[in-house]
């Protein structure tokens, strides 16, 4: 018995007992831990409830055939990254091609050649290991949403029209604060501050896509669309202000400087996508909505309200979030007045 790679948990789904026995025995001989299921429905159930590294899936089966199982797995966020190898008779090659096009990792024809079985299973496990590693790295440097989107549809520059909410937030007079303390202290303060703000944004489905100095820009509703992006953006902002109170209490307790922030949110159509070069690019949003959000954020200084939103954002807020109409404001470089609202809290 030789074990070429670390043992993996494999699921074999086949209605034919001899096939199940041959496959599981061969794979156990290679050091893997194997479970079996007799039909597609049972297989899918086991796949969903257990923890597997790979599935070997027969096509022709009662209850639920291989196609249906494959489709269900590919539509499941938790399962789609687990490789599936189709096993089928030679004559079913058309069906196999369809499965591979749908997203099956590979295929094996039955009777399964043990050497090919070993090679394909190990190759698929290795690919999965690399993808898991890639996913982990992506998540360190990009948001989870961007990472998932990149892994699913690949990377390409260029954008598309989306409807989303944009948030800008920055620290009031951070330059003055920075001038009055040690540089390391400023960086420390920023890191603590950002980690609190990022959490509030991420918890509400937002994606921080830019950090410049003490300011940040976040998107809600893109790259993954969700209906209530305006509400989520405002809830994130309220949570940020709550977090800031706690942060300031800590600062005060340590005899350090307290900070104030301004947040602006605007909602509307924009172009979203990756900009930059093939080797260095960021996910960003461009359009009037983005400019409006930025202007509204700046206006928080004058308005003396920490959280301001535009009318499109206000329109889709539920009753429990109270707002105050600040009237129409004409911003620099804009022809049309923008109706600005201050959020009072929920």
């Amino acid at each position: 018995m030789t074990v070429s790679s670390s043992p993996a948990h494999l699921l074999i789904v086949d209605d034919n007992k001899v096939n199940r026995m041959v496959l599981s025995r061969s794979l156990e001989q290679q050091g893997h831990v194997v479970e079996t299921a007799e039909n597609g429905r049972e297989g899918l159930e086991k796949f969903r409830t257990g923890v597997f590294d790979l599935m070997l899936l027969d096509i022709e089966m009662p209850e639920m055939d291989g196609f249906e199982v494959l489709e269900a797995c590919l539509n499941d966020v938790d399962l789609r990254q687990i490789p599936i190898i189709m096993t089928s008779a030679m004559e079913e090659l058309d069906a196999v091609v369809k499965c591979v096009e749908l997203g099956a990792e590979d295929y094996l024809t039955k009777p399964v050649n043990p050497i090919l079985l070993r090679a394909r299973v190990n190759a698929s496990l290795e690919k999965k290991r690399l993808r898991d590693e890639q996913r982990r790295l992506f998540r360190t440097f990009a948001t989870k949403e961007v990472a998932e989107q990149l892994l699913r549809s690949g990377f390409s520059l260029g954008g598309k029209q989306v409807k989303a909410s944009i948030m800008f937030a920055d620290i009031r007079s951070f330059t003055t604060i920075a001038e009055n303390q040690e540089p390391s202290e400023s960086i420390d303060l920023l890191n603590q501050y950002f980690s609190l703000m990022f959490d509030a944004i991420t918890n509400n489905g937002g994606t921080v896509n830019q950090v410049v100095g003490d300011g940040l820009m976040a998107v809600f509703g893109a790259p993954i669309f969700f209906e209530d992006h305006s509400e989520k953006a405002v809830r994130a902002a309220l949570q940020m202000l709550e977090q800031l109170k706690v942060f300031n209490q800590n600062q005060l307790a340590q005899g350090k400087m307290q900070i104030r922030i301004g947040i602006g949110i605007a909602t509307g159509q924009m172009v979203a996508g990756y900009t930059g070069t093939q080797t260095r690019a960021i996910y960003t949003c461009i359009g009037d909505t983005v400019n409006v959000a930025s202007r509204i954020e700046e206006y928080t200084k004058e308005a003396l309200h920490p959280l301001l939103i535009d009318n499109y954002t206000r329109e889709s807020l539920p009753e429990d979030i109270k707002v105050e109409d600040l009237g129409k404001i004409i911003f620099k470089g804009k022809n049309q007045a923008i109706n600005v609202f201050a959020v009072r809290g929920s």
């Binding site: 026995m21 001989q29 050649n113 079985l117």
Partner: peptide, 14 residues
């Protein structure tokens, strides 16, 4: 080839 893959002790059961 089957006997080798499954193991000689297992071929009877198969």
């Amino acid at each position: 080839a089957l006997k080798e893959a499954a193991g000689a002790d297992f071929i009877g059961e198969l």
